[in-house]
Write a protein that binds this DNA or RNA. Structure first.
Lengths: 249, 249
DNA sequence: TAGATTGTTAATCGATTAACAATC
DNA sequence: TAGATTGTTAATCGATTAACAATC
């Protein structure tokens, strides 16, 4: 079994894609897939799928393929999303509320144990049963909750202070939604969620499509609904829909 | 001037990081930076910063560095976020409302022209002055707005239908917040925003830190607040804070 | 057995890093 | 001029892809 520390980050990131597809397939009652199938469903090539899994062990049966339920379970284990895990949210604003309302948490066994804010008007209330505490009580409150992952969902100018507090309270992994680069000690892992950055990338791509000329006409040529599997358009490749299994009700 | 179609996607993505830093620096009244400075501020190495810019032209003065305001402006041009651009949001739920409330749109010159939903109770109302229209009126409404970027902020089971409608209405770039792989024609660009995937990556990393043994002790050794510039911890590298310019008030 | 499909090794590709000549 | 810093070329590194032996 390979050392998990030499797993390329891109491979690790793709595990989330796979688990999402597998959940969908499981939901649809499919119980076996080949790496070829996964290529169609996930948009990641069959070779890469197998290679990615190989960093973690063996998951399939030669000549047969992969058991959907089993593979989903084992990837969940790898990601440590197979058992309940408390996380803490800081910021009870619009974004915070939207995050709490997000229905996907429980299928990854994440549980928002509490929200922290500094607005006195919000403290003591609850948002969808998640209690709002004062940010000053973070360290103390987390002694019970034992969350290690903190979500920063406050305005940019408060984000560094919040990050500092989370670090001081012993959190060692942060997700940052604020549009600012946070500075944290080396041992703390941060991942940024920057949707405005995604918009900016799109903005560039649509205005520079099909070469320097950038003409709309050049793009229109390729129209029609013929979908090409694995064709790159600056984003992740998408599968053809020959299988129709995924996507849409 | 190089052909912009051979710009590596990672380089393009980093432009957003740079512009963010430059905005911050501009806000602080800094008017000149070197690539070394940018390494500290952005966490991207000086060599990579210069290399990334080189795909687009020349931006600095040898021996001097870069003019902050000028560089910010030119990168904004490259990303086409230098002039107003309508975008359309589909989904007037919690997430949609949070997106509308997000304060960062205008600094990138994005404007949410309208929200579309299918809930009759929401149609005709406004969310922070953004009108909510019925999804059936999408094509017609967009004739005036001329948005090319659509934001999918609906539940997973509605997302593919929404994507299909956006494509039919002529949108050629989508941001997808729904936890499902969307299938669209080749010429349409999609980018996924999957924060639960980010959580899952963190979940793996914190539980597998410092090798197979995975012991907490191994990590504690590296404690203290000594921050190492450019050290990778599975996320983007972070700068030391010798300059204190960025991050936190 | 023959056909299918995995897990893995080798070959290719592309991105990052280092080094340096150009030049302010 | 001397020192600094860019833009770019060359070297390194790492990830992806292709090919295939193992095996169900």
């Amino acid at each position: 079994m390979p050392n998990e520390n030499q797993v390329p980050l891109p491979a690790l990131e793709r595990l989330s894609t796979y688990i999402r597809c597998l959940m969908q397939l499981e939901h649809e009652g499919v119980d076996s897939v080949s790496s070829q199938d996964m290529e169609r469903f996930s948009g990641v090539s069959a070779a890469q799928f197998r290679k990615d899994l190989s960093y973690f062990g063996e998951f399939g049966k030669r000549g047969i393929g992969y058991n959907v339920r089993d593979l989903r379970g084992r990837i969940a284990q790898l990601l440590h999303v197979d058992q309940n895990q408390n996380v803490v949210l800081v910021g009870a604003g619009n974004l915070g509320a939207a995050l709490i309302a997000y229905p996907g948490w429980h299928s990854y066994h994440f549980r928002i144990a509490a929200v922290f804010d500094r607005d006195p008007a919000k403290i003591g209330k609850s948002i969808r049963r998640v209690p709002v505490h004062h940010i000053d009580t973070l360290t103390e409150a987390n002694r019970e909750m034992n969350a290690r992952i903190g979500i920063v969902a406050v305005p940019a100018w408060e984000a560094q202070d919040v990050a500092d507090r989370l670090v001081a309270a012993g959190f060692n992994a942060l997700i940052n939604f604020a549009p600012i680069k946070l500075t944290v000690p080396r041992q703390v892992i941060i991942r940024e969620v920057c949707f405005i950055c995604e918009l900016a990338v799109l903005s560039h791509l649509i205005h520079n499509a099909s070469g320097q000329d950038g003409s709309r006409e050049a793009r229109e040529e390729l129209d029609g609904t013929g979908e090409a599997p694995g064709s790159s358009n600056g984003s992740t490749p998408r599968p053809s829909r020959t299988t129709a299994a995924l996507g849409g009700e």
